[in-house]
Design a protein around this nucleic acid. Sequence first.
DNA 1: TTTTTTGCAAATCGTTTGCACGCTG
DNA 2: CAGCGTGCAAACGATTTGCAAAAAA
Lengths: 168, 168
Amino acid sequence: MTQLLEAPKTSPAEVTRLESFLRAKNLKLTGERRIILDAIFRHESHFDAETLHADLKEAGSDVSRATVYRTLDLMVQAGLVRKNSLGSSHANYEAARNDDHHDHLICLGCNHVIEFFQPALEAMQEQVCQSHHFQLVHHSLQIFGLCPNCQGKADESVIRNRVAQLHT
Amino acid sequence: MTQLLEAPKTSPAEVTRLESFLRAKNLKLTGERRIILDAIFRHESHFDAETLHADLKEAGSDVSRATVYRTLDLMVQAGLVRKNSLGSSHANYEAARNDDHHDHLICLGCNHVIEFFQPALEAMQEQVCQSHHFQLVHHSLQIFGLCPNCQGKADESVIRNRVAQLHT
DNA sequence: TTTTTTGCAAATCGTTTGCACGCTG
DNA sequence: CAGCGTGCAAACGATTTGCAAAAAA
């Protein structure tokens, strides 16, 4: 929730990771890539390409929208960023700080996102795959509903409608 | 509007369900809506708006694309159709034949979709919600990987790339 | 008749791309 | 210097919308 306006300081670990990814692919570490990586890791939570682009502009870095998209893509490939939709029709991203895989609870009332990790759930998915002789590569679990704050307050029909429009 | 000539046979149950939904909302049962409902339930599996529109055209029913989209939306609200993305950037739909909720295994090699239902998995999601005082309304679980046929055959880097592009 | 629906085409939204120029290795 | 990267603006694909004409209640 805290918006950091100061102190960029991307952890050196991330820069290093990006560097080796780029080197391995004969790609270059440009100023724009540094700046974007930095802006990404300044976000505490989820963000989208538009927001990121706005952030950069506000910070005085006029990186083009095209470059933002291209770079986000690159970061995803490098494993530095994760991409989710969270039910919306446009992509959302989050910095991959550790290797902390998690799933999401998404509030249909206020759009608040809660992250959770449940090993038993993961294990059971593995099991499902095994029983179908299916080789698991990736999975996405999104749970939509109402956070404690929004329970009772939300209009039933509005919620129904939102559910019908979800892009999941 | 044009009439279908061959063995439509939407189960009367579906028509009835649509009728009562429409009546409850003071909406009208038009020829287009009948025809589209019919086309939807003729699909065994998943389909998208474009495909459905093409089907209709091929069958001689020239329903406009706009109406297809509008009607799919309506059907989702009526609970007659379910909407998923299956990882793609456009919406996919499937007729809701019973109340058979299920999740999906999606092959990154051939796009084959396998449906599964695992009660224990559902229960565990309920549990996660409870522990977060979160009121579950809807959930979406998609597992991406390789079906038995595609295992071994798929190019590692191609798969990696597809995963990065998933819209989930 | 009154109200909802349709078709059309234009508009939107998020994202991608071709190209000429600029920068990194 | 050879490529890769960037900005720009135009292109894109999926979906939505305003409006006048057409159909249902």
